[in-house]
Amino acid sequence: MPMSSSESSTALKRTVIVALFAAVAVVLSIVEAQIPLAGMGLMPGAKLGFANIMILTCIYFLRARDAFVLVILKTLLTAFLLGTFSSLLFSLFGSLFSFVVMYLLVRFGGKRLSVIGISIAGGLAHNTGQLLAASIVLKSSSTFYYFPMLLITGVVTGIVVGFAVRYVVASLSKISLFEEFLGGTGH
């Protein structure tokens, strides 16, 4: 059955939004890569998770599959642009864990959970996913030595990302392109 004009328009809008969010997520990842966290005693390769701003925002507006496409695009484009293919597995594990946790919390937590709480859970899931990937690659559980520090950074960055998402969602909700997608997790 062919798509109606309205359905076609909505599909195009979704594609445009995912592309815009992917571009912003990649830029945030590039900016984040310039911040030397290893000098702060964090695990090598640790990141602040600024790209999660766009992923969590996408979860609030669009469908799970749209946010999933965004996660994959952001991860692959960032790895390609930053030349970090060796860390692609770590980023992919972390991003997918984070996406699943945040999506489930938004979808089933509804109004009971704050965006900041969901963001913190996403940050913790991202760090856990990366540590699991590292333990698989290195065939050692010694990577979990970093877990306490990553829990702390996951909470702190989750709070920052959560506040940013709250602002971004409120701001985008006022733009006509996003109006029909308000409450997107049910679509």
Results as ranks from 00 to 15, higher is better:
residue 79 A to S: 14
residue 66 D to P: 04
residue 52 N to S: 05
residue 15 T to V: 12
residue 33 A to M: 05
residue 32 E to R: 07
residue 156 V to F: 13
residue 122 G to D: 10
residue 172 L to M: 13
residue 70 L to V: 11
residue 106 V to I: 13
residue 74 K to G: 07
residue 53 I to Q: 06
residue 42 L to M: 15
residue 177 L to E: 03
residue 142 S to V: 15
residue 88 L to A: 02
residue 49 G to V: 04
residue 19 A to C: 12
residue 109 G to W: 01
residue 114 S to V: 10
residue 71 V to N: 04
residue 102 M to P: 10
residue 92 L to Q: 01
residue 123 G to A: 08
residue 20 L to M: 15
residue 85 F to R: 05
residue 156 V to G: 00
residue 122 G to C: 06
residue 81 L to N: 00
residue 21 F to E: 03
residue 187 H to A: 15
residue 127 N to A: 08
residue 32 E to Q: 10
residue 46 A to K: 11
residue 171 S to C: 07
residue 29 S to T: 12
residue 103 Y to C: 06
residue 5 S to T: 12
residue 183 G to D: 14
residue 17 I to R: 00
residue 123 G to K: 09
residue 23 A to Y: 00
residue 130 Q to F: 08
residue 182 L to G: 09
residue 174 K to E: 13
residue 158 G to C: 03
residue 60 Y to C: 15
residue 136 I to H: 04
residue 120 I to F: 02
residue 70 L to I: 08
residue 73 L to W: 05
residue 30 I to R: 05
residue 105 L to D: 08
residue 38 A to N: 13
residue 162 G to D: 04
residue 106 V to Q: 12
residue 86 S to M: 14
residue 3 M to L: 15
residue 138 L to F: 12
residue 98 S to I: 07
residue 168 V to M: 09
residue 55 I to H: 06
residue 46 A to G: 07
residue 53 I to H: 03
residue 139 K to T: 10
residue 45 G to E: 06
residue 152 I to C: 04
residue 160 V to N: 03
